[in-house]
Design a protein around this nucleic acid. Structure first.
Lengths: 342, 342
DNA sequence: TTTAGCACTCCTAGCATGCGAGTGCTAAAT
DNA sequence: ATTTAGCACTCGCATGCTAGGAGTGCTAAA
């Protein structure tokens, strides 16, 4: 177990390193207000902390930097919630103040504000669509051959899709189609729509609709909604400001990973409830070895539907970021729940 | 006027520099197959070319690199169309082979393929919406309070927008609203809709619709379609591969400019018909001083509607990029014209 | 007109040097 | 028994020097 003095020193070392990005030595530590010990004493304590694996040297005679274990301990035991300036709070609130109904915009705004406040890169995983249920289906014919289908889900997600109509379809058939689909499919999860369509709806189509085989194929196309959630980004290039990313190689690697979509998707898809911090190699991904990822889930009603995340260097301002994400994920959950849960 | 020999030397210098990114000197030039002159002769010619401003030295005793004037001359007089490999041609065709109805996807695909083939950054300015005309308007009520409006334009652009309904509106009022709007507004350019709404439609609303003031406000919101065309990107991080962008500062600057949207919007908004090359300071923008921008317009029917662009270092593979953009802009115009012009 | 030769310039890589910030260890001070 | 002062030592980094290489311009000969 660490002594109070060791805790203090560890905390100051990490705090300082997070601020300055420079290794810190015993002499500069001794000058700090909080610490009234000689540099020699501190040297002894630091040697112990190093032996325990919380801090490390970059070379034999350098100051110390936090190790991954050090950061982990810091995050778990040494940080306390940070006060967020009023002005910044208002920025968060402002996401939800405007009368925005559209989910996508709220989420994109969240990512932007998050990156703006933290100066790191924000990634938001949009709400699960898999669990979404169909709440409305409509067809709007554009001309003889094409129509646009509008699909609305219970979470406020709206999608439109062009498709081709059977030749010489009449108005009443279209109406019947819409009625049947609404009657049979509303309330069902999107994933099941295709199955239901072919099993249950097909029979009804056959009974009531001319040219039913073409129609059912078109509808099937339309209902084939991409099931992977979308990712929203904010401050993609904030990384370039961080001193740890002065190496163009590293930047390229991590940027590439960001652009690729699928990589981050998996990373965010399976995050535990609430705030979670993954430091460096804890992410189990070589590209992320020098990064920390802080995630927070958000929900609609009781259901956890998505994740907001901040990607930054391991030397991240953890307390501040965690406080901000706490606020934002709560506000986001509240706002979305108000709008879309029934 | 330049002699044939000077032309040859200028061409080889620029070709070589585009390939290698290293200044080239008289000795290495003399070794080239195409050139059977001694290094001393070449030195004399190069001195002349420098005096004329086509090439320059990075320091007193360095090899030569092309000047902006040199690139300009090269682009205007020395390059010839490049053969594009079959495989690459097919990649271009593949954008249009699939059955895609949606404009946005075709355009996004174009940007992606363009960046993939050139290894530079592609930016595409979507089709003008200002000139677009309304071709269909529909309202789809979701519940008591909200509805989604669907707006379709003559170029196949579809937009949906949530809005709130007046309290206790009845079905027939909604239908009347839709009818009036379709009757009065279809065929009008999007820019004029707001004006027409307040001038002509307002009167009709007053006559026929309960709660008309609320309704007209909602409709006005809905018809307030963002009039700036969207930008689509491909290969944003390709820049990082170029040796001229090893300086993180420069990368940051230019990336920032890319992310900002509005900057590039103006750059692409006013491009002349066909292929255009702007080299370095010709772009009249400090961030672009080390970049070249190649643009090509595309059209639907006879109307020029948008621009595709490649952003790269001044040391760009001009002939190849121009050839590719020629192909792609033509194919894009054809495909869009087939789909959306009548 | 072209080319060979030569002196000169400038960049770059490599190496020595000194300084500063840091360390560990020991012995004295508290 | 801790804490601290002192000291020798280490390492990174900035500086300056040097040699080598690639290039140039100029002059004089081919």
């Amino acid at each position: 177990m660490l002594t109070d003095r060791q805790l203090l020193i560890l905390q100051v070392v990490i705090d300082d390193f997070i601020r300055s990005a420079h290794p810190i030595g015993s002499r500069s530590l001794a000058k700090k207000e909080k610490i009234s010990l000689s540099s020699a004493t501190i040297r002894n304590e630091m040697a112990d902390l190093e032996e325990l694996g919380f801090i490390e040297k970059t070379h034999t005679s350098s100051g110390r930097v936090p190790s991954e274990k050090g950061y982990r301990f810091y995050v778990d035991h040494l940080i306390s919630p940070e006060k967020i300036a009023l002005q910044e709070l208002q920025k968060i609130k402002s996401i939800f103040n405007e009368k925005i109904y559209e989910l996508e915009k709220i989420i994109q705004n969240s990512a932007s504000v998050l990156s703006e406040l933290t100066k790191y890169t924000a990634v938001v995983l949009g709400p699960t669509v898999k669990e979404n249920k169909l709440s409305k289906f409509q067809i709007l014919p554009l001309n003889e051959e094409t129509a646009v289908a509008i699909i609305v889900t219970n979470t406020g997600h709206i999608e439109h899709k062009l498709f081709s109509l059977p030749k010489s379809i009449n108005k009443s058939d279209l109406e019947k189609t819409v009625n049947i689909l609404n009657h049979r499919l509303v309330g069902n999860p999107l994933v099941n729509l295709q199955e239901k369509l072919f099993k249950e709806v097909a029979i009804l189509f056959k009974e009531h609709i001319d040219n039913y085989d073409f129609m059912i194929q078109s509808v099937a196309d339309v209902l084939n909604i991409p099931l992977h959630e979308k990712l929203y980004y904010g401050g993609k290039i904030n990384m370039l400001k961080q001193p740890e990313f002065q190496d163009i190689e590293k930047v390229h690697e991590i940027m590439n990973f960001l652009e690729e979509e699928s990589g981050f998707y998996h990373l965010l898809k399976e995050t535990p409830f609430g705030i979670n911090v993954k430091i460096g190699t804890e992410n189990n991904l070589t590209v992320m070895d020098n990064c920390s990822l802080i995630t927070a889930t958000y929900n609609i009603g009781q259901e956890q539907v998505g994740t907001i995340a901040i990607l930054g260097p391991k030397r991240m301002h953890y307390s501040r970021v965690i406080s901000i994400m706490n606020l934002l994920s709560n506000d986001l959950s509240n706002a979305l729940s108000k709008l879309y849960s029934q």
